[in-house]
Simulated scan of single mutants.
Amino acid sequence: MEFFTVMGKVWTEYSSLFLHGLWMTLYMGALTVLISTVSGSLMAMMHRSSWGIGRFKPLHAAAVVYVEVIRGTPILLQLYFFYFMLPQWFPALDLSEFTCVMIACCVNSTAYVCEIVRAGIQAVDAGQTEAARSLGLNSRQAMIHIVLPQAVKNILPALCNEFVAIVKETSLASTFFIGELMTQFKTINGITFRVLEPLTIVGIIYFLVTFVMSKLIALLERRMNASER
Protein backbone atom coordinates (compact mmCIF):
# COMPACT_ATOMS: atom_id res chain seq x y z
CA MET A 1 0.00 0.00 0.00
CA GLU A 2 2.90 2.35 0.73
CA PHE A 3 4.07 1.97 -2.88
CA PHE A 4 0.74 3.18 -4.28
CA THR A 5 0.52 5.96 -1.69
CA VAL A 6 3.94 7.27 -2.68
CA MET A 7 3.10 6.88 -6.36
CA GLY A 8 -0.03 8.97 -5.84
CA LYS A 9 2.01 11.68 -4.10
CA VAL A 10 4.61 11.67 -6.89
CA TRP A 11 1.88 12.06 -9.52
CA THR A 12 0.16 14.84 -7.55
CA GLU A 13 3.37 16.83 -7.08
CA TYR A 14 4.96 16.26 -10.47
CA SER A 15 2.05 15.69 -12.85
CA SER A 16 3.05 18.80 -14.82
CA LEU A 17 6.45 17.28 -15.53
CA PHE A 18 4.93 13.98 -16.61
CA LEU A 19 2.45 15.76 -18.89
CA HIS A 20 5.21 17.90 -20.38
CA GLY A 21 7.18 14.73 -21.03
CA LEU A 22 4.14 13.16 -22.69
CA TRP A 23 3.71 16.23 -24.90
CA MET A 24 7.37 16.13 -25.94
CA THR A 25 7.16 12.39 -26.64
CA LEU A 26 4.08 12.78 -28.87
CA TYR A 27 5.54 15.87 -30.54
CA MET A 28 8.76 14.06 -31.37
CA GLY A 29 6.85 11.04 -32.66
CA ALA A 30 4.49 13.09 -34.84
CA LEU A 31 7.26 15.29 -36.25
CA THR A 32 9.43 12.27 -37.01
CA VAL A 33 6.61 10.47 -38.82
CA LEU A 34 5.66 13.60 -40.77
CA ILE A 35 9.21 14.21 -42.01
CA SER A 36 10.07 10.55 -42.58
CA THR A 37 6.84 9.97 -44.53
CA VAL A 38 8.03 12.51 -47.11
CA SER A 39 11.69 11.43 -47.11
CA GLY A 40 10.79 7.73 -46.92
CA SER A 41 8.45 8.05 -49.91
CA LEU A 42 11.20 9.74 -51.92
CA MET A 43 13.62 7.04 -50.83
CA ALA A 44 11.15 4.37 -51.95
CA MET A 45 10.94 6.02 -55.39
CA MET A 46 14.73 5.97 -55.55
CA HIS A 47 14.70 2.31 -54.56
CA ARG A 48 12.34 1.55 -57.45
CA SER A 49 14.22 3.76 -59.92
CA SER A 50 15.36 2.07 -63.13
CA TRP A 51 17.45 5.04 -64.26
CA GLY A 52 21.08 4.15 -64.67
CA ILE A 53 24.29 4.10 -66.60
CA GLY A 54 24.42 0.73 -68.26
CA ARG A 55 23.57 -1.82 -65.60
CA PHE A 56 24.51 0.51 -62.74
CA LYS A 57 21.49 2.23 -61.18
CA PRO A 58 22.89 4.91 -58.81
CA LEU A 59 19.58 5.99 -57.26
CA HIS A 60 18.56 2.39 -56.58
CA ALA A 61 22.02 1.56 -55.21
CA ALA A 62 22.07 4.62 -52.90
CA ALA A 63 18.63 3.75 -51.51
CA VAL A 64 19.58 0.11 -50.92
CA VAL A 65 22.80 1.06 -49.12
CA TYR A 66 20.99 3.65 -46.99
CA VAL A 67 18.23 1.26 -45.93
CA GLU A 68 20.62 -1.60 -45.18
CA VAL A 69 23.01 0.56 -43.13
CA ILE A 70 20.28 2.25 -41.09
CA ARG A 71 18.30 -0.93 -40.46
CA GLY A 72 21.50 -2.84 -39.71
CA THR A 73 22.66 -0.56 -36.89
CA PRO A 74 20.95 0.19 -33.55
CA ILE A 75 19.06 3.45 -33.18
CA LEU A 76 20.98 4.31 -29.99
CA LEU A 77 24.23 4.21 -31.94
CA GLN A 78 22.67 6.49 -34.57
CA LEU A 79 21.51 8.91 -31.88
CA TYR A 80 25.03 9.14 -30.46
CA PHE A 81 26.53 9.46 -33.93
CA PHE A 82 24.37 12.39 -35.04
CA TYR A 83 24.44 14.02 -31.60
CA PHE A 84 28.24 14.29 -31.69
CA MET A 85 28.84 14.37 -35.45
CA LEU A 86 26.54 17.22 -36.54
CA PRO A 87 27.93 19.93 -34.21
CA GLN A 88 31.50 18.96 -35.17
CA TRP A 89 30.93 18.80 -38.92
CA PHE A 90 28.54 21.75 -39.17
CA PRO A 91 29.48 24.16 -36.34
CA ALA A 92 28.18 27.17 -38.28
CA LEU A 93 24.62 25.80 -38.06
CA ASP A 94 24.69 25.92 -34.25
CA LEU A 95 22.33 22.95 -34.01
CA SER A 96 20.58 22.36 -30.68
CA GLU A 97 20.63 19.03 -28.89
CA PHE A 98 16.95 18.55 -29.71
CA THR A 99 17.58 19.16 -33.41
CA CYS A 100 20.43 16.65 -33.53
CA VAL A 101 18.30 14.00 -31.85
CA MET A 102 15.36 14.72 -34.15
CA ILE A 103 17.56 14.40 -37.24
CA ALA A 104 18.78 11.03 -35.98
CA CYS A 105 15.18 9.88 -35.39
CA CYS A 106 14.12 11.02 -38.86
CA VAL A 107 17.10 9.36 -40.52
CA ASN A 108 16.26 6.11 -38.75
CA SER A 109 12.54 6.25 -39.46
CA THR A 110 13.07 7.14 -43.13
CA ALA A 111 14.63 3.73 -43.77
CA TYR A 112 11.63 1.92 -42.28
CA VAL A 113 9.08 4.15 -44.01
CA CYS A 114 10.89 3.51 -47.29
CA GLU A 115 10.29 -0.22 -46.86
CA ILE A 116 6.66 0.39 -45.83
CA VAL A 117 5.97 2.48 -48.92
CA ARG A 118 7.84 0.10 -51.21
CA ALA A 119 5.94 -2.89 -49.85
CA GLY A 120 2.64 -1.01 -50.19
CA ILE A 121 3.34 -0.23 -53.85
CA GLN A 122 4.44 -3.77 -54.60
CA ALA A 123 1.23 -5.09 -53.06
CA VAL A 124 -0.78 -3.39 -55.82
CA ASP A 125 -1.49 -5.84 -58.63
CA ALA A 126 0.92 -5.35 -61.53
CA GLY A 127 -2.05 -5.58 -63.87
CA GLN A 128 -3.15 -2.14 -62.65
CA THR A 129 0.00 -0.56 -64.06
CA GLU A 130 -0.31 -2.50 -67.29
CA ALA A 131 -3.93 -1.38 -67.69
CA ALA A 132 -2.93 2.24 -67.07
CA ARG A 133 -0.17 2.03 -69.65
CA SER A 134 -2.56 0.52 -72.17
CA LEU A 135 -4.80 3.57 -71.69
CA GLY A 136 -1.92 5.87 -72.67
CA LEU A 137 -0.59 6.88 -69.26
CA ASN A 138 3.17 7.02 -68.83
CA SER A 139 4.96 5.44 -65.84
CA ARG A 140 4.79 8.59 -63.70
CA GLN A 141 1.09 9.16 -64.41
CA ALA A 142 0.28 5.52 -63.74
CA MET A 143 2.11 5.71 -60.41
CA ILE A 144 0.42 8.96 -59.30
CA HIS A 145 -3.14 8.32 -60.51
CA ILE A 146 -3.49 4.53 -60.33
CA VAL A 147 -0.91 2.81 -58.11
CA LEU A 148 -0.39 5.25 -55.22
CA PRO A 149 -4.12 5.76 -54.40
CA GLN A 150 -4.46 2.00 -54.02
CA ALA A 151 -1.15 1.63 -52.18
CA VAL A 152 -2.24 4.16 -49.54
CA LYS A 153 -4.66 1.57 -48.13
CA ASN A 154 -1.70 -0.72 -47.51
CA ILE A 155 0.67 2.01 -46.36
CA LEU A 156 -1.48 4.00 -43.91
CA PRO A 157 -1.96 1.34 -41.19
CA ALA A 158 1.75 0.48 -41.33
CA LEU A 159 2.65 4.16 -40.97
CA CYS A 160 0.44 4.38 -37.91
CA ASN A 161 2.25 1.37 -36.44
CA GLU A 162 5.55 3.12 -37.18
CA PHE A 163 4.28 6.09 -35.17
CA VAL A 164 3.59 3.78 -32.21
CA ALA A 165 7.09 2.34 -32.51
CA ILE A 166 8.66 5.81 -32.66
CA VAL A 167 6.76 6.93 -29.56
CA LYS A 168 8.37 4.06 -27.65
CA GLU A 169 11.80 4.60 -29.22
CA THR A 170 11.86 8.24 -28.10
CA SER A 171 12.64 6.88 -24.64
CA LEU A 172 16.22 6.40 -25.89
CA ALA A 173 16.47 10.16 -26.39
CA SER A 174 16.49 10.51 -22.59
CA THR A 175 20.21 9.77 -22.89
CA PHE A 176 20.55 13.40 -24.01
CA PHE A 177 17.96 14.92 -21.62
CA ILE A 178 15.71 16.63 -24.15
CA GLY A 179 12.52 16.63 -22.10
CA GLU A 180 10.50 13.56 -23.11
CA LEU A 181 8.98 11.09 -20.64
CA MET A 182 12.10 9.18 -19.63
CA THR A 183 13.95 12.46 -19.13
CA GLN A 184 11.19 13.56 -16.75
CA PHE A 185 11.57 10.26 -14.89
CA LYS A 186 15.27 10.97 -14.41
CA THR A 187 14.48 14.50 -13.24
CA ILE A 188 11.88 13.35 -10.71
CA ASN A 189 14.13 10.51 -9.58
CA GLY A 190 16.88 13.05 -8.88
CA ILE A 191 14.50 15.20 -6.84
CA THR A 192 12.69 12.51 -4.83
CA PHE A 193 15.29 9.73 -4.81
CA ARG A 194 12.42 7.38 -5.70
CA VAL A 195 12.84 4.99 -8.64
CA LEU A 196 9.96 2.54 -8.90
CA GLU A 197 7.09 4.97 -8.33
CA PRO A 198 7.92 7.52 -11.08
CA LEU A 199 9.08 4.72 -13.35
CA THR A 200 5.73 2.96 -12.91
CA ILE A 201 3.86 6.17 -13.73
CA VAL A 202 5.91 6.61 -16.91
CA GLY A 203 5.25 2.98 -17.83
CA ILE A 204 1.50 3.44 -17.34
CA ILE A 205 1.52 6.57 -19.53
CA TYR A 206 3.43 4.77 -22.30
CA PHE A 207 1.05 1.81 -22.08
CA LEU A 208 -2.09 3.96 -22.20
CA VAL A 209 -0.84 5.96 -25.18
CA THR A 210 0.26 2.95 -27.21
CA PHE A 211 -2.84 0.94 -26.24
CA VAL A 212 -5.21 3.70 -27.38
CA MET A 213 -3.23 4.23 -30.57
CA SER A 214 -3.21 0.49 -31.34
CA LYS A 215 -6.99 0.33 -30.93
CA LEU A 216 -7.43 3.34 -33.21
CA ILE A 217 -5.19 1.71 -35.82
CA ALA A 218 -7.22 -1.51 -35.61
CA LEU A 219 -10.42 0.53 -36.08
CA LEU A 220 -8.89 2.29 -39.09
CA GLU A 221 -7.91 -1.04 -40.65
CA ARG A 222 -11.42 -2.45 -40.16
CA ARG A 223 -13.01 0.60 -41.77
CA MET A 224 -10.61 0.51 -44.69
CA ASN A 225 -11.28 -3.21 -45.21
CA ALA A 226 -15.03 -2.59 -45.00
CA SER A 227 -14.80 0.16 -47.64
CA GLU A 228 -13.26 -2.31 -50.09
CA ARG A 229 -16.26 -4.64 -49.94
Rank of each mutant, 00 (worst) to 15 (best):
T5C: 09
M7F: 14
G8N: 10
Y14K: 14
S15T: 10
S16F: 15
L17H: 10
L17D: 10
M24Q: 07
T25N: 06
Y27R: 14
V33Y: 09
L34T: 15
I35N: 08
S41V: 07
M43D: 05
R48T: 04
L59K: 02
V67Y: 00
E68F: 14
R71M: 09
P74R: 05
L76W: 01
Q78S: 09
F84N: 14
P87D: 00
F90T: 13
A92H: 04
L93Y: 12
L93P: 11
D94K: 13
C100E: 05
C100L: 03
A104H: 08
C105I: 15
V107S: 09
T110Y: 03
V113P: 06
C114I: 00
I116A: 02
V117L: 09
A119N: 05
A119L: 08
V124C: 02
A126H: 10
G127S: 03
T129R: 05
E130Q: 09
A131I: 02
A131N: 06
L137K: 02
L137Q: 00
S139F: 10
S139L: 03
R140I: 02
L148F: 12
P149M: 07
P149S: 00
L156E: 02
A158K: 11
L159Y: 06
N161I: 05
E162P: 01
E162I: 05
V164G: 03
T170A: 06
T170H: 02
F176S: 03
F177H: 05
G179D: 02
M182T: 15
M182G: 11
Q184M: 11
K186N: 11
I188A: 08
R194F: 13
L196T: 13
E197V: 12
E197P: 11
P198I: 10
T200K: 01
T200M: 13
G203T: 09
I204D: 02
I204V: 14
I205E: 04
I205Q: 01
F207R: 00
T210M: 01
L220I: 14
A226L: 10
